[in-house]
Nucleic acid binder design. Structure first.
Length: 878
DNA sequence: ATCTGCCCGATTTTT
DNA sequence: TCGGGCAGAT
């Protein structure tokens, strides 16, 4: 079973015998046994430290250890605290050993954080929790152990997206399909989508199979899987699917894990996809008692080795099965796996899922909100605990967020509250700006203002919908000399030189890694061009051997011309040498040797381009980061799964990131720019996702709002450049969905873009408290009074050009028409009423002369503001 | 092999 | 509009 990859032996994981409550034939509930009663009594008088300070709901979530539990944890309600305390509680009550707890998260960051926080509670015991990690890292662990059961060797490599795309491209080309017409990238996404749903090649819906490359979808997918097998490689999806397949095919193995995992905890359950859901179900089920319908204490079944997985389980293995088994399982809720009707007490499943349906924002990448909505059906008798007491934000922020999210249907329904009210708290501020440049400028000023009041930049964040919005803020902050950091930009591991170096290391550790081979065989240049690689490739494929092995063969023959043959000989010899050093030389030293001897570092040393020194620096950094690992293999494992680079924490800087990457974070002050129709909600979400797309966007808005602890500023602009074209935009419908009681329409002392809602203010979605009412607040009225005719002309409906649609591309069936609303749509064909040289006045930029005219767009040299491009509606002749 | 010019596309992102 | 990717030329 153990294959030498894991240093933790599987069967020796459990510490020396010590009576476990769970192993005794005692009833599960703490109301029964003597020990339990004693514990309950003790709890009443002297609850353990870690329980004090929990509110009643949190405490219930921590202490309900028996049976399925769903914790609906709203934003800022102490979710992580509950999760970590629950684990501490399980451990300290002796319910399970650390190694008997399966705790799954989505991201490495979450796993790290959880580990840290449990460490604080239980000390070194956290080190004994090998089954805490991401779905993928646990999947890898399972697979390394049982690789041979799914036809892999335990040394398999994990391919990242880039490798996958290159591989698929090869396959598409090998099939003689035009890879221009049928892009590999697109197909990689399709495969990813199928894998998210748990579909193997045999399982994909006929329509899907047909829609790619004239019906070749299924064949290509199968060819891809076959190729992965010969490469001894997995993609990310396989890290989930292979274990599922293995568990289905080998109930005995599954049973080992059933017996092992006494408690399962899942973080961010709303983000699970179908494959993850199936994976969890397999691990959480207790099929033992189906054979034996009489009520069985959960942990009694130690000796029931005869029990097997249910027949339903064997249906369609992931790769070979037929039919849509994911779908089938879906429809069976409550599933017989959980102990169906008339079968007596359902088997006990100590699974605890924590999540928030209102923060489900990853539907587009396969997450099924439905998993969380269906929890009670899936796990009959589940206890659902709502955490609604928020410890993060002001009442205004919570009020705004709650009112917004209430517009969604299909939610489990929570309302966050706080009892900390402070009359000094700011309401949520809504600001209008002329264009995105002004938006950035105004946000910059606001930040400087706060900075003058001694607020740390680290406490501020700008959360955007799409990353192109970041640039303008960056530009502005560079001008201002304001520190900022962009979170979630291009990553360390994605850099060319890092990927090259990793390819060398991969090939040393895993000689069958053809993708790595192809990447570096001619890097640095060795005169091994396309022709050589192609013949190597063909030879290797013909014999079904790795390319490195093929190279070793071919250099013995006269297949090749002398020059490439010599180069190839050198490559093969180098790799043989390095492989020999693998076990004897310290891995960091070996890494340096590899990069030196291969000529890779020299390649960059001889490169006189500006980036070269930086790349060399990155390579050094790469080797430095290897020091933390035991071996090169260990390092590669880490890099495959944990591909983030640490940020510089010391710097005091404003964070700029997307709303998606902000989930889980909090800041004193949050800026939410770009609340315009078409951008947020994003047009594509609307077009492709319809109603549910809109709801996901709304959840994204909810996530944005609830990141703020004390101050939240929302911005929308009148004009935004999209794909190089200036488009006039409408304020986001989400603004209409904010409650007037918690929101202020802010006046800025900048020139602002006043905005007249006209008939539009009648919210289309909000029956109760339309935000339009805010426009009768004193603040707004004052703002109105400042408006000049020039602005009204263009913001109002008088000039009546009208805008039919916003967003990009062709107008689709969902394009909105707002009668007589708003103007300033770019119109190239109509002659301008202005002439070059005209003296004009602009509300924001003052007086200037028209330098050129392009349709309704004017380039004006302003006396004070310099040259700007503006729409003709915004200026008047002087 | 390296450069140049043309064409396409253009949310969100983890593992 | 602007940048990345790729095909074709040098």
């Amino acid at each position: 079973m153990s294959n030498g990859f894991d240093d933790i032996p599987f069967f020796d994981e459990e510490p020396a015998p010590r009576p476990l409550r769970g192993r005794e034939p005692a009833p599960p509930a703490p109301s029964g046994g003597i020990a339990a009663r004693a514990m309950a009594a003790r709890d009443q008088h002297r609850a353990p430290d870690y329980l004090s300070g929990l509110n009643p709901e949190q405490r219930e979530a921590v202490e309900t250890l028996d049976g399925p539990v769903l914790v609906l944890a709203g934003a800022g309600t102490g979710k992580t605290r509950v999760l970590t305390t629950r684990i501490a509680h399980i451990l300290s009550t002796g319910r399970a050993y650390p190694s008997q707890i399966l705790a799954v998260t989505f991201t490495n960051k979450a796993a790290r954080e959880m580990k840290e926080r449990i460490g604080v509670l239980v000390g070194a015991a956290v080190e004994g929790m090998p089954w805490m990690g991401t779905f993928h890292s646990i999947g890898v662990k399972l697979l390394r152990r049982h690789a041979e059961l799914v036809g892999l060797k335990s040394s398999f490599t994990i391919l990242d997206t880039d490798d996958v795309v290159r591989l698929i491209k090869q396959i598409i080309q090998a099939e003689g399909i035009d890879d221009k017409r049928w892009p590999a990238k697109q197909f990689a996404q399709m495969i990813d989508g199928w894998k998210n749903k748990g579909f193997g090649p045999a399982d994909i819906p006929e329509g899907d199979a047909r829609s790619f490359a004239n019906g070749m979808g299924r064949e290509l997918y199968a060819a891809y899987q076959a190729r992965l097998m010969t490469l001894n490689a997995c993609d990310f999806g396989d890290l989930l699917l292979h274990p599922i397949r293995m568990f289905r095919a080998h109930p005995d193995v599954l049973k080992e894990y059933h017996d092992k995992f006494r408690y399962i905890l899942v973080d961010e359950y709303q983000d699970t996809n179908t494959a993850q859901y199936m994976w969890l179900r397999l691990l959480a089920q207790r099929p033992h008692s189906r054979k034996n319908p009489s009520p069985t204490p959960p942990h009694k079944g130690e000796g029931q080795t005869s029990s097997r997985a249910t027949a339903g389980d064997h249906r369609g293995s992931v790769n070979t099965g037929s039919g849509d088994f994911a779908q089938e399982e879906r429809q069976e809720s409550p599933s017989p796996l959980w102990g169906g009707v008339g079968e007596g007490k359902p088997p006990q499943i100590n699974i605890c899922c924590v999540g928030d349906d209102d923060q489900s924002i990853y539907g587009w990448r396969g997450a099924e909100v439905d998993n969380i909505l269906r929890f009670e059906k899936d796990f009959p008798g589940a206890k659902v605990i709502k955490l609604e007491r928020n410890y993060r934000s002001t009442e205004h922020i919570l009020g705004a967020a709650a009112h917004l999210i209430a517009h969604n249907e299909g939610r489990l329904g929570k309302t966050l509250f706080t009892d900390r009210t402070d009359p000094d708290d700011d309401k949520v501020q809504v600001h209008a700006a002329w264009d995105s440049e002004e938006e950035a400028r105004a946000v910059g000023e606001e930040i400087e203002q706060l900075q003058r009041q001694q607020h740390s930049l680290n406490d501020m964040a700008i959360l955007v919908r799409a990353s192109f919005q970041m640039r303008e803020f960056e530009d502005r902050f560079v001008t201002l000399g304001l520190n900022y950091r962009v979170i979630g930009g291009p990553r360390f591991y994605e850099r060319l030189e890092i990927r090259d170096a990793l390819a060398y290391f991969r090939l040393v550790c895993q000689p069958a890694d053809d993708l790595a081979f192809e990447r570096i065989v001619n890097t640095p240049k060795r005169g091994l061009g396309d022709t050589t690689v192609r013949s190597l490739h063909d030879y290797a494929r013909g014999r079904n051997i790795p390319m490195l092995a093929a190279a070793a063969d071919l250099i013995e023959t006269d297949e090749m011309k002398a020059k490439p043959r010599k180069s190839l000989f050198d490559v093969v010899t180098m790799f043989k040498r390095w492989q020999g050093l693998l076990e004897t030389t310290p891995h960091t030293e070996l890494a340096e040797t590899i990069l030196e001897e291969s000529g890779y570092t020299d390649m960059w040393k001889n490169d006189k381009s500006a980036e070269a020194p930086g790349r060399l620096e990155n390579l050094k950094e790469l080797i430095r980061s290897m020091e933390a690992f035991e071996s090169m293999r260990g390092f590669l494992e880490h890099i495959a799964l944990v591909m983030d680079a640490e940020q510089n924490e010391d710097l005091d800087a404003v964070s700029i990131m997307t709303l998606h990457s902000a989930k889980g974070l909090e800041f004193e002050t949050v800026f939410l720019p770009g609340w315009e129709e078409g951008l947020f909600p994003h047009q594509r979400a609307l077009d492709e996702g319809g109603r549910s797309g809109l709801e996901e966007e709304r959840r994204l808005a909810y996530v944005g709002l609830t990141r703020a602890k004390r101050r939240c500023h929302i911005w929308f602009v009148a004009n935004r450049r999209i794909h190089g074209l200036w488009q006039s935009t409408l304020p986001s419908r989400f603004l209409d969905e904010l409650p007037v009681t918690h929101v202020d329409v802010a006046e800025t002392d900048q020139s602002y873009g006043g905005y007249n809602r006209g008939g539009y203010g009648q919210s289309r979605f909000d029956k109760q408290e339309p935000f339009a009412n805010a426009y009768s607040t004193p603040g707004w009225k004052r703002a109105q009074a400042h408006k000049t005719d020039a602005t009204r002309d263009n913001w109002g409906s008088r000039s009546g050009v009208g805008i039919e649609r916003i967003g990009y591309g062709e107008s689709g069936p969902r394009a909105r028409t707002i009668d007589g609303e708003l103007v300033a749509k770019s119109k190239i064909d109509e002659p301008s009423k202005f002439n070059v040289g005209d003296r004009v006045f602009h509300i924001k930029f003052g007086n200037g002369n028209i330098a050129s005219i392009e349709g309704n767009k004017l380039t004006i040299d302003f006396d004070r503001a310099g040259q700007k491009r503006v729409l003709d509606g915004f200026v008047d002749r002087v």
